[in-house]
Amino acid sequence: MNLDDQQDRPSGADEEFVQLLIAEQHRLQHYILTLLPNRDAADNVLQETNIALWRKASDFTPGTNFSAWSRKVAYWKVQSYLRDRQREKVVFSSAMVSQLASRENAFEKKADEKSALRHCLSKVSGANLRLLYERYTEGCSIQAISSKVGKKESAIKVQLMRLRRKLLDCIERKVAQKSPGN
Score class of each variant (00 low, 15 high):
E104D: 08
H30A: 08
V97M: 04
V97F: 00
A74L: 05
H30G: 08
N44F: 14
A42G: 01
A68L: 07
V45G: 04
Q79N: 10
S67Y: 00
D40H: 12
L100M: 06
Y75L: 05
V91F: 02
A42L: 02
A95K: 07
K89D: 05
N38M: 04
P62T: 02
V91S: 02
K72R: 12
I51L: 14
V97A: 07
V45K: 02
S102C: 09
N44P: 10
E104N: 10
S94M: 14
V97K: 09
Q29V: 15
A74I: 03
V91R: 00
R39T: 13
N44T: 10
L82R: 13
S58P: 11
Q47H: 08
F92I: 09
R27W: 07
N65H: 04
D43A: 11
L82E: 00
L46D: 08
R71L: 03
V91D: 12
K72Y: 15
Q79K: 11
W54V: 14
Q99F: 09
S58V: 06
Y75P: 06
E104P: 03
V78D: 02
I51Q: 12
Q79P: 04
S80R: 11
A52N: 00
D59L: 10
L46H: 05
E88I: 12
Y81F: 11
W69C: 01
P37F: 04
S80A: 15
E88C: 13
N105T: 09
P37K: 07
